[in-house]
Design a protein around this nucleic acid. Structure first.
Lengths: 257, 257
DNA sequence: GTTTTAGTTTCACATATAGCAACAATTTCG
DNA sequence: CGAAATTGTTGCTATATGTGAAACTAAAAC
């Protein structure tokens, strides 16, 4: 037996999903043995599970190296999500214009499991690029997008994030629960959030909330840039443009003032 | 027992994957009962499997309607695929320029399971749009991208496609095996393929092959447009631009000459 | 050529899973 | 508004099924 965790969950399915999730940006290819070791699951179980995943196209087995990669079925499924999510359909053109106007990379992100996850990214032309990608997860309390989303979330979400611990990533990371609560309050009033090197040294960002037709904040729009490209004037200018862009997206989602 | 198909495959995992795959553009939301009925799997099995999928973020359960949707874990995984696939990284800027220059939508697609699947799409600004999306599958023998990919595939792939049957979608669909073989031969010589309403009435497209550093055709670049926007001159012009764009992408992938 | 490592498959056993049925919770309909 | 029907979840049990150990291949390393 491997996992007897959640009683009403199918362990073999859970194993399969863990195998899928173990692929990452840094390790996009894995062998059966590597999977078996890192997940602490028997080799033969991994072998059979991966074969099943492969037969449905969720992973692809390189016939030369015997290593597995994520497969095209996942692309198919992601396409279905995207086209059925309003934010995807409505935000694309607005994002493009924002990126062009600011000259910096922009993202759409949502809160998931008390972290943010990037749903969309439009990259700028600068050769110096920031280290995000669609699907990436980042902490909520030290990114501008995360702070915006927290600021408009229920208190219990904020408290849960605080309870999980506010890890210090840089000397600018807010680690005091009280300060964080005050800061979020301020963000709610201002209608935007800045993160000046709170998560990564040398990286700053600006985020604003996107409202749906019910007036709920469903996602955040953020612009990221290397700190040195963001002097005070530029910061203000981009903040204003980001606010306008998120208003435009909110309106497309049916939000009225 | 539900499936005893492939002996060395895990049926519960296969069930889970079938459940994931049953979501589509037209049916992005499904209830337990719907899933159970359409897949002919017991309700309780579906319930437990979906709960497992939900706990890992592969599906999301709407607390109001009790219906399931595909979840964000899939977006995460797709992001990993994209950023680790050379075609994704290298083709984006070239695609953008092509779309701007042609004024029509462009795609990158690959062959998977004898069908084409769209990996990437850059949309044009025309209000009249074509019905594709990332992750969509289309038949290979009647789309321009598919024909290009078949033309540069091994014979057994072509024969397999023929054996599966050449369904007539429009009056322009090629349904004769002999004609198809000749046509593919021609495409290989020309270095591009056209599909003039072979799959959808009123829709035409142009596709060219993309080579990797080993000289193998790994994907196709295609431009799609409503038939009426593609007069003879425009068709020639776009064909030329598409050829150049695919050459540019191939070079970025390390292909020489 | 031998040794090591990696992946698949066989086999027997234990158990996790599928199906049934009962239950709880909605929703639909009279 | 209450009865009937539909839907989702959970004990329960038998048995199909997934697991782990080891045998077996195959390939790579030495």
């Amino acid at each position: 037996m491997t996992n007897t965790n959640n009683k009403n969950h199918l362990s073999s399915v859970r194993n399969a999903l863990r195998m899928l999730k173990s692929f990452s940006m840094d390790e996009p290819e894995k062998s059966v043995s590597e999977l078996a070791e890192s997940l602490d699951i028997n080799k033969s179980t991994v072998s059979r599970t991966m074969a099943t995943l492969a037969s449905e196209g969720f992973v692809y087995k390189d016939p030369d190296t015997n290593k597995y990669r994520l497969g095209l079925s996942i692309i198919s499924l992601s396409g279905i999500i995207n086209n059925n999510t309003d934010i995807f359909n409505e935000s694309q053109p607005v994002l493009n214009r924002l990126v062009e106007s600011c000259g910096e990379t922009a993202h759409i992100s949502v809160l998931d499991n008390d972290e943010i996850i990037y749903l969309q990214k439009v990259e700028c032309n600068h050769p110096v690029r920031i280290l995000t990608h669609v699907g990436k997860r980042n902490p909520a309390y030290c990114t501008s997008a995360g702070k915006v989303l927290l600021a408009f979330s229920d208190d219990d979400v904020v408290e849960r994030v605080i309870a999980k611990g506010l890890k210090k990533f840089t000397k600018h990371t807010i680690t005091s629960p009280t300060k964080l609560r005050e800061h979020l309050q301020e963000i709610r009033l201002n209608g935007y959030a800045h993160s000046l090197e709170e998560f990564n040294e040398g990286v700053s960002s600006i985020a604003t909330p996107i409202f749906d037709y019910t007036g709920k904040v469903v996602s955040a729009l953020s612009v990221v840039a290397p700190k040195q490209r963001l002097n005070n004037r530029k910061l203000k200018e981009i903040t204003k443009k980001t606010i306008n862009a998120s208003k435009a997206i909110s309106e497309r989602l049916g939000y009225w003032r």
